[in-house]
């Protein structure tokens, strides 16, 4: 298990932190995989979308805790960050879209929307395109937890 804690304000001070953090963690967790390069590339893409979502939608102040762990072929990414009820609702609506029958249609709509991407796009992509299982929960009154469970390598390949 790996965990990184940083102040949400520091994290959000520079967009490139999403890229740097996802690339760094992807490299750290890519050992002992069927194919470390392919895994690292996919993991970095998935984690980056989660981090970019948090970068755009988060509460005012507090810590961003990012922990990753592995159990067999399943990789779990857990992000805990400041979030009031309004913020939490954004995530809940995105997850609700994924549980519906037309998740793929909603994903494509979000993907080809003109202008700025919808905040839920990254989560929809993870759910639809990466087959990730996404869950959210409240952590105390002013924080939330976003969990993504991914299987990025097919052991039978």
């Amino acid at each position: 298990m790996l965990q990184m804690d940083l102040d949400i304000g520091d994290f959000c001070s520079n967009w490139s932190h999403c890229d740097l953090l996802s690339a760094y963690l992807a490299r750290m967790v890519s050992h002992n995989r069927l194919d470390s390069l392919l895994f690292s590339n996919l993991y970095s893409s998935a984690l980056n979308e989660l981090l970019e979502t948090v970068f755009r939608v988060h509460g005012a102040s507090g810590k961003l805790e990012c922990s990753v762990r592995r159990q067999g072929g399943l990789d779990r990414i857990e992000l805990v960050f400041p979030a009031d009820e309004d913020i939490f609702r954004v995530y809940r609506e995105a997850i609700d879209k994924l549980s519906g029958e037309n998740a793929e249609k909603l994903y494509l709509e979000a993907l080809f929307t003109e202008g700025q991407p919808d905040a839920s796009l990254g989560l929809l992509e993870l759910g639809v395109d990466y087959g990730a299982r996404l869950t959210i929960d409240r952590v105390g009154n002013d924080r939330m937890c976003l969990v993504a469970e991914l299987t990025l390598e097919d052991e039978n390949e």
């Binding site: 890229d19 980056n48 979308e49 970019e52 993907l111 991407p117 796009l121």
Partner: peptide
Amino acid sequence: LVRMNNVAFQAIACKIL
């Protein structure tokens, strides 16, 4: 193109469309 986020994909893909 080793990495690409949705912002970039959306911009490029919509332009191609």
